[in-house]
Simulated scan of single mutants.
Amino acid sequence: MAIIDHTTTARYSDAGRTTTTRRLLACGVAAGPIYLAVVAAQVVTRDGFDLTRHPLSLLSLGPGGWIQTANFIVSGVLFVAGAVGMRRAMTAGIGRTWVPRLIGVFGFSSVWAGVFVADPMNGFPTTAGTSDPTVHGILHSIAPVFAFLALIAACIVLARRYFRAGRRAWGVYSAVVGVALLAPDLLMGRDGFSLALAAAAVVGWTWVSAVAADLLRTTVSQLS
């Protein structure tokens, strides 16, 4: 009769779990840079696009719009995978339940923004008059609301987690990002809104990937 070495089996099981968690967190690490790099390339190459007047969502329209649509969906899926990795890595402490959920909502909102594209506005992608709002345009407008609300809430929860763990720099970083993400709301309907929205995306998307990288470097290594 074969003798089962439960210690060896458990060790291999833990190693497999750690490897999977690392891969999921790596998806979260990659998501932000991928999204921002693709956006940056489009901002400087799309004819007629003006960052001071046009929200990034409009890049999904017109010739080549499929690139931004794919960017929303792919980065969103990667962020959701990263959220699953966070849930596996955050086994204790403040935010172990809600931070992954909130990041998951954020990732899903990106996918939603890719599925339901924005309506044309401010002369992009065409200078023709803006038509009445469409169903997909209205549905698209829901995405940034949920994305930013989820990110702000995640910042607050993670700031508490970091401060409680004595990691003041990360706590301050998370709190500052949470405040910065409010900027677009303060400029809604005013000059500078599109720029504030783009800047908030850079700050927020980078923060999520940074948190995933921190978990990949610290928490997961402790599981090895």
Rank of each mutant, 00 (worst) to 15 (best):
T134C: 06
W112I: 11
A40S: 12
S60D: 09
D50K: 15
F116A: 04
G104F: 00
D119F: 06
P100H: 03
L24E: 00
G48Y: 03
P63Y: 04
D119H: 08
A30N: 07
A183R: 03
D119I: 13
L58D: 04
A201F: 10
A165G: 10
M1A: 13
G137H: 08
G16F: 05
Q222W: 06
V208S: 04
S75P: 07
G93W: 04
R101C: 12
F124M: 06
F116N: 02
V105H: 02
G171C: 07
S131M: 13
I156N: 02
T219H: 09
M86F: 00
L158F: 08
F163P: 06
P144C: 08
T19R: 15
G178V: 06
G48E: 07
S194C: 12
L25Q: 01
R87I: 06
W207F: 07
F193M: 10
L36C: 03
P144G: 08
R190D: 09
R190Q: 13
T9F: 14
T91R: 14
A175L: 14
T97A: 11
T52P: 08
D214L: 15
V176D: 03
V203K: 03
L51R: 10
V176K: 04
T134W: 00
A89H: 03
A128I: 13
T21I: 06
A198L: 10
T218R: 15
L78C: 01
F106P: 02
F193L: 10
R161M: 07
A175E: 08
V220N: 02
N71M: 06
V111A: 01
L139W: 02
N71P: 08
V177M: 07
Y162V: 14
